[in-house]
Design a protein around this nucleic acid. Structure first.
Length: 276
DNA sequence: CGTATCTCCTGCAAGC
DNA sequence: TGCTTGCAGGAGATAC
């Protein structure tokens, strides 16, 4: 389940595989849709464009070419991997980019919750105007993402703090895993009303979100189900999970058992003693 | 308007 | 052993 760290690791991998000015010599679509239809213009646009770089906004990969961009969300199970010349394609390999040296970059997505869209607007305009990007909140590493920012926005809402920090209109990139983990290290109960969390606690939470995400990026992301970094290395942040999917296991701080509840339809893991 | 629920999809694990 | 069932969840769409 790609959250910000997994998307960031993927971004770095793609940028290591492609250089500025490169052409993608061949595009193969093995199906015409993922979550949405893949624009038919994708192929001709790639053919006549040069790759510049891949950026990340929230959980989106933005493939920047000299005259358009690809907006690419990995959904739940999407991933990009390198395919050597002799490897065969697998069942859920849907999109294949062939590079000039013959290597292939393959988009694989068993559940097809991911999507690929294109934008021909200038890059900055795409960020501001594209229907998937325009409503996005602050990047967690933005200097403006502070405890005060969360405190101010939380005054208007009735939702639990966990649902609040997973709301992409507030802060982006924090999905279920990193919300659970950050709330644990910040010592905040996931079900506490966002409006009742103090400024002091929000200051701690912001620090913990940044720390958790940074650590996860460093360790290659979390390998749950089949997320792998592009060169087929498993991330190993899952080794560092303190509460996520630890139901019934002892809390590493206090020894009481980790509980699971459902918030906003999502499995939520926490220590009822350490998180208040 | 905010908030909750439904929905897409497949693989896997649990339970009978 | 082999079936059914339920769960995993990002986030847009829909309903209230």
């Amino acid at each position: 389940m790609p959250e910000l760290p997994e998307v960031e690791v993927t971004r770095q991998f793609i940028n290591e595989s492609l250089s500025k000015g490169d052409k993608i010599t061949k595009v193969e679509l093995r199906r015409k849709d993922l979550r949405y239809e893949i624009p038919t213009e994708l192929k001709p646009l790639i053919k006549k464009s040069k790759f510049i770089t891949v950026e990340r906004r929230a959980k989106y990969l933005l493939w920047v070419f000299d005259n358009f961009q690809i907006i690419n969300h990995l959904g739940m199970t999407g991933s990009w991997k390198a395919l050597g010349k002799n490897n065969t394609l697998k069942k859920h390999d849907h999109v294949i980019f062939t590079l000039k040296n013959g290597d292939k970059l393959v988009y694989s997505d068993p559940r097809r919750f991911g999507y690929i869209d294109i934008s021909k607007a200038p890059y900055n305009e795409t960020l501001k105007e594209h229907r998937f990007l325009k409503h996005l909140g602050l990047e967690p590493f933005d200097k403006k993402f502070t405890g005060q920012y969360l405190k101010d926005l939380s005054k208007k809402t009735n939702t639990p703090v966990k649902t609040f920090i997973m709301d992409q209109k507030i802060v982006v990139g924090v999905g279920n895993i990193y919300a659970c983990e950050s709330l644990f290290t910040a010592g905040i109960s996931p079900s506490k009303k966002a409006s009742r969390v103090t400024l002091e606690k929000y200051n701690v939470l912001v620090k913990e979100i940044k720390k958790t995400l940074k650590k996860a990026i460093k360790t290659g992301g979390s390998t749950i189900s089949d997320f792998k970094t592009g060169d087929n290395q498993s991330g190993y942040f899952q080794m560092h999970f303190k509460v996520y999917q630890k139901t019934g296991k002892p809390c590493e701080k206090c020894g009481s058992l980790i509980k699971k509840i459902v918030l906003g339809g999502r499995g939520t893991f926490y220590c009822s003693k350490c998180q208040r």
